[in-house]
Amino acid sequence: MSASNVAAQHVHADPHSVKSSLSILFGASVWGIAWFPYRVLNGWGLGGMSAAALVSCTAALISLIVFRRQLSGLRGSWLFAAIGLAAGVTNAGFVWGSVNGHVMRVLLLFYLTPVWTALFARMFLGERLSAAGLLLVALALFGAGLMLWTPEVGVPLPGNAAEWSGLAGGMGFAVNNVLSRRAGQRFPEMDARLRTVVVYVGCTVVGVPCALLLDGSHVVLARGAGVSVASLVLGLAVVLVVSNAIVQYGLQRLPANRVSLLMLFEIVVAAVSAWWLATETLSWKEAAGGLCIVAAGALSGLVHRAKPASTAAAPGVEAAA
């Protein structure tokens, strides 16, 4: 990366990192509770992947209509096709895994993303994991393990198709974060809302074949559930479009590894929502683990404070945690 590109990156850096971090935390909160409406739709007979495909298709149509004026600014690039496909894998893995498996175990495997993010950020962005960042990743993963591990569930390794689905979704999420960051560096003037369109078109492209493969002709709606299904699909699609547009703001401005840490807040929200909506008890281990994850996300803000120009990272390598 040339010195001029590095200078341009610093010019376009977000001076309000708190706002960017809050946008990521908001998205994490939405996804931390999104498992519940998908399970409701599955209970009404729609099927997990069919629900994901239908919501994604609706969200894609909404985003195309709402952001139609920004579409002219979308430039042809392999980056955006890759971002869409990665988002599709993320969505399919998350939804199918959380609907058909143990929610918290699937999320644990999904949120091994700091490992994948560190690898992909090094490959695509030249970001290196600092010593402080490595400690924060370890703290976050320790918190996840402390909060989610139980003797009945066992060690956090994939044990069935739903858990492998969660792991694959986490890898797709890491790729999506890293490529979104790169797109923000290459096209800093591009409206971030355009990537919302890209994301849900990608989710539709991946979701429809997966629905046909996994659900097929087994979708049979419960008697009288048609209106309820349509209303919930539309409402969920609107919420996801809005939250994704907000998240894109943070993805464009924060290092990929920091985004990965902040998104771990989803596990805390999922644990609380599972306790509240599914009457699952939140044990002291889960609470302590959640606090470790929140602490890691909060401390990452100190690690990533803007450095003076004289101490900036060398060209081509961005110091990030």
Rank of each mutant, 00 (worst) to 15 (best):
V198T: 06
W149T: 13
V208P: 09
F120I: 07
V178H: 09
V229P: 11
G169W: 05
L212Y: 05
F124Y: 12
L141C: 00
C203Q: 13
A138V: 09
G216M: 06
C210T: 05
V208K: 06
V198D: 05
V137L: 10
E189S: 13
A140Y: 08
L148N: 14
N176G: 00
A230L: 12
G207L: 08
T150P: 08
G170Q: 02
C203Y: 10
L141M: 11
R195C: 05
G207E: 07
V199N: 13
L125R: 03
A140L: 11
M190E: 15
V198L: 04
L136S: 06
L212M: 13
L146A: 12
Q185D: 14
R128T: 10
G207A: 04
A144C: 11
A132P: 00
A225V: 01
L157W: 15
G166A: 03
V206D: 10
S231A: 15
G170S: 01
M147G: 15
E189N: 10
L146W: 13
V175N: 02
V155C: 04
G224N: 07
R122G: 12
T150E: 14
V208E: 09
G154M: 10
C210A: 15
F173C: 04
A132N: 06
R128K: 10
P158D: 06
T113A: 15
G133H: 04
R193Y: 10
F120P: 00
R122D: 01
L135W: 08
G143V: 06
R193D: 13
A192H: 15
E189G: 11
V205M: 13
P156R: 02
S217Y: 06
S217P: 00
W116K: 00
V229S: 02
S165V: 01
F142W: 13
A118N: 02
V201F: 11
L157H: 09
